[in-house]
């Protein structure tokens, strides 16, 4: 997909940083304000979608390569599972909020509080952002103006995620 005009490119170059920072804010303050991991992850992915619309697919692929996004995705899920298993190791029951109960209670309504909830939010935000980015990147390879398909079973289009 090609990009857009020079006006769109300039403005979105400034705005995408703001959107990314806003997404990080929603994730980090997820235990205090509405939002949390999933909503913040969607906002992170949408900053990359804006870049994809304004600059074109190839630019985004150079910026955040697909294998890196895939590894970030798995890392996010693994971090969430690690937080839950550490609850088992330190707290005795699976998924217990061990930081709040023993080590780091913090003060209420401050950034460092509510135990392992901010860690879970960060893990989910990372995973959701990377997954949605990969999904929309793969779907954007669809072309409506190709030739009629033959009876074969192979697909020569470079769709991400297909080896």
């Amino acid at each position: 997909m090609k990009g857009m005009t020079i006006i769109v490119k300039t403005i979105s170059g400034w705005v995408k940083v703001l959107i990314f920072l806003f997404g990080i804010n929603i994730i980090l303050f997820g235990h205090l304000t509405p939002g949390g991991g999933f909503a913040g992850g969607v906002i992170l992915a949408s900053s990359y979608v804006l870049m994809m619309l304004a600059f074109g697919r190839e630019f985004v692929e150079k910026n955040l390569p697909i294998p890196l996004a895939s590894r970030l995705d798995c890392f996010g899920a693994f971090l969430f599972a690690a937080v839950a298993i550490l609850g088992l190791v330190f707290g005795g029951t699976f998924f217990v909020n061990f930081l709040y109960q023993k080590y780091l209670p913090g003060h209420a309504l401050h950034l460092v509080s509510a135990g392992t909830i901010p860690l879970s939010n960060i893990a989910i935000g990372l995973k959701v952002g990377a997954s949605l980015f990969l999904a929309i990147f793969a779907l954007s390879a669809f072309r409506k103006d190709f030739q009629r398909p033959d009876a074969g079973g192979d697909n020569k289009r470079p769709v991400a995620g297909q080896e």
């Binding site: 995705d73 798995c74 599972a81 699976f94």
Partner: peptide, 13 residues
């Protein structure tokens, strides 16, 4: 539940 989930997310690496 946890063992297959964790392994499912390690495998794509």
């Amino acid at each position: 539940v946890v063992a297959p989930l964790v392994m499912a997310f390690i495998l794509p690496v």
